[in-house]
């Protein structure tokens, strides 16, 4: 295809991505380096017939003018990244020098909002991803042995948790595990503790969110692995069987190696998607016990005072996190491309 034709074909999609993805990234990076103007104060003298008092008021005109001249705010450099709401380098340095033990240091780290969000996001990402792969694989193997008329039905219901929007899915579960909901009551009965509430403790909230995450994403792994099982080389299976491999050995030495590329694929996609965990925290109303990086940004942006600079700094840090997670994929794609020539 000629360069010129290619250009016209790619123009609409490239423009859309440039304007609404690439430029916003630039804008986010810029905003994270600026902080809003402070209000300009002026001293005015109020004279009554008897005496004069001096008072300090906000000079609205001057503040407005300054805003108009420099809409981004004043230059802040990296200070927003380093402040207490983000990387909190000063607090960490202090905590490290005055620590009594490593546990104490980790505790103090946990009090900083950014590290709290980071620790949940990473725990969620790296616990949910392997679990959903295992569960998805188990479902795929079990469904594959079903009668073929049943398969369609099972796949239909299996797709539901994945297809509904995460907020709706988490609300549905949230209402069930409410202490007055059916699962909540069931758990109270099971542990014979009428005051048991999953919302009250940090550990239980994390477990609840992780269970939700596995429930939501396992169907994806299931569908991919199930498709992989359809292309299982039958002659290899037969040879394995003739050689006397048990069912377990067949699974271990034939099925799993056959599915391994798919496992990598699912793992990479899910690492990216789980890293952006956000809606479940809103749905489960869990922000008191668990916050994620995406929720952290959302929280800054919402409400009356939109903390754009702070949200931008968190966004940049999140993007850096994504980049680190993504680097293996990029390296792999590059190698594939090289191999193709």
């Amino acid at each position: 295809m000629k360069h010129k034709t290619f250009f016209w074909f790619i123009l609409p999609t490239a423009t859309a991505m440039l304007l609404f993805i690439a430029l916003p990234i630039v804008s986010v990076v810029t905003q994270s380096l600026f902080t809003p103007h402070e209000q300009i104060l002026k001293t005015v003298e109020n004279c009554t017939p008897f005496n004069c008092t001096e008072s300090t008021v906000v000079d609205l005109d001057a503040t407005e003018q300054q805003r108009a001249e420099q809409p981004l705010g004043r230059w802040a450099g990296l200070s927003i990244y380093l402040d207490r709401g983000h990387l909190a380098t000063a607090v960490i340095a202090d905590a490290w020098t005055t620590r009594t033990s490593i546990g104490d240091f980790v505790d103090r780290l946990g009090n900083l909002p950014f590290y709290r969000a980071m620790s949940f996001t990473l725990t969620y990402t790296f616990v949910v991803t392997p679990l959903l792969i295992v569960l998805g694989f188990a479902i795929a193997v079990a469904v594959n042995s079903l009668h073929r008329h049943l398969k369609g039905l099972v796949i239909f219901f299996s797709l539901l948790p994945m297809i509904v929007s995460p907020l709706i899915g988490s609300l549905v579960l949230f209402w069930m595990i409410d202490s007055r909901g059916v699962l909540g009551t069931g758990l109270q009965w099971l542990f014979s503790n009428p005051d048991l509430s999953l919302k009250a403790s940090t550990e239980l909230t994390w477990i609840m969110l992780i269970v939700y995450g596995v429930w939501h994403s396992a169907p994806f792994a299931f569908v991919v692995f199930y498709a992989g099982l359809q292309t299982l080389p039958q002659d290899t299976m037969e040879s394995a069987m003739i050689d006397g491999a048990t069912r377990w050995q067949q699974t271990k030495y034939v099925v799993i190696p056959h599915l391994m590329p798919l496992v990598t694929f699912v793992a990479l996609i899910q690492l990216m998607d789980n890293f952006r965990v956000f809606e479940p925290i809103v749905g489960f109303n869990a922000e008191a016990h668990a916050t994620s990086l995406s929720w952290f940004i959302f929280n800054d942006l919402g409400g009356e005072t939109r903390l754009l600079s702070s949200a931008s700094a968190s966004s940049v840090l999140t993007i850096i996190g994504v980049a680190i997670l993504l680097s293996p994929v990029l390296v792999r794609t590059w190698r594939d491309f090289k191999a193709k020539g």
């Binding site: 609404f20 916003p24 905003q31 990216m272 952006r276 940004i297 942006l301 993504l326 990029l330």
Partner: peptide, 20 residues
């Protein structure tokens, strides 16, 4: 590759760039 990188970014990280 650029599209893949964009695909990986959480949409919420872009919102701060849109608002202003």
């Amino acid at each position: 590759i650029i599209a893949l990188i964009f695909r990986a970014m959480p949409p919420i990280t872009l919102v701060a760039g849109y608002l202003l």
